[in-house]
Amino acid sequence: MERKRDYMTVQELTENEKYKFWYFKIKECKESGLSVKDFCDKNNIKPSTYYNYQQKIRNILC
Rank of each mutant, 00 (worst) to 15 (best):
Q55R: 15
R58Y: 07
C62F: 15
M1H: 12
R58D: 06
V36Q: 06
S35M: 12
K4W: 06
T14A: 13
Y51I: 08
C40Q: 01
S48K: 03
D41P: 02
I60C: 06
Y7C: 05
R3I: 05
S32A: 11
R5V: 14
K18I: 15
T9Q: 08
Q11F: 13
T9C: 10
I26M: 07
N16V: 13
F24S: 11
K42Q: 12
K56H: 08
I26T: 04
W22N: 05
Y19P: 03
Y51C: 04
S48L: 04
E15Q: 15
L13N: 11
M1V: 09
D38C: 05
Y50F: 15
D38P: 07
Y51F: 07
T14R: 13
C40S: 06
N44E: 04
W22K: 05
K37S: 10
C62R: 14
K4R: 13
R58I: 08
P47L: 07
P47N: 01
K37F: 00
S32G: 04
R5P: 09
K18A: 10
N52Y: 15
E17K: 13
Y23E: 13
M1P: 11
L34M: 15
T49N: 07
K30Q: 04
Q54K: 11
N16P: 02
D6A: 12
P47E: 02
P47F: 02
K46G: 06
N44D: 08
K25P: 01
I26S: 02
G33F: 02
K42E: 10
Y51L: 04
N44T: 00
F21M: 07
V36Y: 02
L34F: 14
R58Q: 08
V36P: 06
F24K: 07
Y50S: 02
Q54V: 01
N52C: 10
D38N: 15
K18V: 15
E15V: 09
N44W: 04
F21E: 03
K27F: 14
C62H: 13
S48H: 05
I60S: 05
F24A: 01
D6P: 02
Y7H: 12
